[in-house]
Design a protein around this nucleic acid. Structure first.
Lengths: 233, 233
DNA sequence: GAGTGGTCTAGACCACACA
DNA sequence: GTGTGGTCTAGACCACTCT
């Protein structure tokens, strides 16, 4: 192969991608090492490294020291999903965003929630139920538990005007979290809030966010009928 | 601030994260430029760059040339989701994986599918319906359309023994795709295959994969009752 | 032991976006 | 124009893992 000039890591990446798609390098096969590619492409090894590393993160390449780099056997493994900030999602569709708090009260959570949040039995919780609307139509019904021992400032906050989510994002520390997606038949309450018949299949997102070892909040969001979450691969 | 030594980009990243979590740098605030941080941390600017770039990809920082770097206002925006390779997911749970083809036939797809795949009216399609099981219990019911004009080799393939998905991953070129997640009430057919009452809320994944401008396949996967897809934030 | 990717450095230039 | 991030280079050393 004649020495060519790929001076940017994007160009190198594009060329590597081309070879993978064209099956010049087939799934499962080893590809040349960084040194060799750098010479072939007429660029520094660091540039090749940048390109391959990026493809590795995307799941298209598998790299191991000493073993080398191979084309992944299951290239479609990871998708980057944007968790919708509802206000933005709604406004981007050209609709008017609305927020309505339905219930804000101190209350003991069910055991499942308490366990998932690894909370102490002495911890006190704020329950916030709310609906967010697009042009007045219900978009999401949200059920939230806030651990007041982790976020004592929330006790005196008035969530009737500001969405609990936006308040927490602004004022609560956050280190990590889990998120899960599923489907659920609408209960009487959910159906009522979303204005659909009970039993309708509802897309549900659950989240728990943490400040180190202490859970901040547990949220369950019930989306309107037919909602789909999309992304590119 | 005294000069300290953070010699690896991970160490720099950890320190930056610490300052964000501790609100030394609050959401929306600018942080010092790379040059300044490199001096403070006693490392090269490239090292700082690597650390900040990684945080930027994760959505925690927003960077713009000339404008500088600021802490993102909505830090929880992106999640990397692993699209499950069902065979692996099932085997990881210690269950026995099974695949059964229900129907393999050339057939014209509904208009919605044809349009989504931007297919020509002359294109011919293979329809493959199948069930994948975990320890014999239905795990996923799958409805797939393969464009035979894009993948003519599929015509003579026998999908009764190998999953269409695994065959396509191995032998079809793939450049990009879309994926979407939603919920649906089980139809009679879906309910029958998944062994649940009709109307049960089912988690659904739809995918279209492309080879350049030509769609390869359209898949709709109906998961068993109660299935949840999870990831870390 | 040895080969591979992973990273760091110091310096340089470029591209963009703001004033 | 000017300051910031984005990238490239050449060389070096390290860390892992395979033999």
């Amino acid at each position: 192969m004649a020495k060519s000039d790929f001076k940017s890591w994007q160009a190198v990446q594009a060329e590597v991608l081309r070879r993978i798609h064209a099956r010049i390098w087939a799934p499962g096969e080893m590809i040349p090492n960084e040194q060799a590619l750098a010479e072939e492409f007429g660029c520094a090894r660091a540039t090749v490294n940048r390109a391959l590393q990026s493809l590795s993160e995307a799941g298209l390449l598998e790299r191991r020291r000493k073993a080398g780099t191979r084309v992944a056997l299951h290239p479609v493994r990871k998708a980057t999903l944007e968790i919708p900030v509802l206000r933005h999602e709604i406004e981007r569709q050209g609709a008017k965003y609305g927020y309505k708090a339905l219930r804000i009260a101190e209350e003991a959570p069910p055991d499942t929630v308490r366990e998932a949040m690894r909370a102490d039995v002495a911890d006190r919780f704020l329950q916030v139920k709310s609906v967010q609307t697009a042009d007045g139509a219900p978009f999401v019904f949200e059920e939230r538990w806030v651990n007041l021992s982790t976020v004592p400032e929330a006790t005196k906050e008035d969530f009737t005007t500001i969405s609990a989510n936006e308040w927490l994002v602004r004022y609560a520390r956050f280190t990590h979290g889990q998120i899960s997606f599923g489907a659920m038949n609408a209960s009487e309450e959910v159906a009522g809030q979303l204005d659909v018949p009970p039993g309708t299949a509802i897309f549900v997102i659950s989240r728990i966010t943490w400040d180190g070892p202490r859970a901040i909040t547990h949220v369950q969001q019930y989306f309107h009928e037919g909602y789909r979450m999309q992304t590119e691969l």
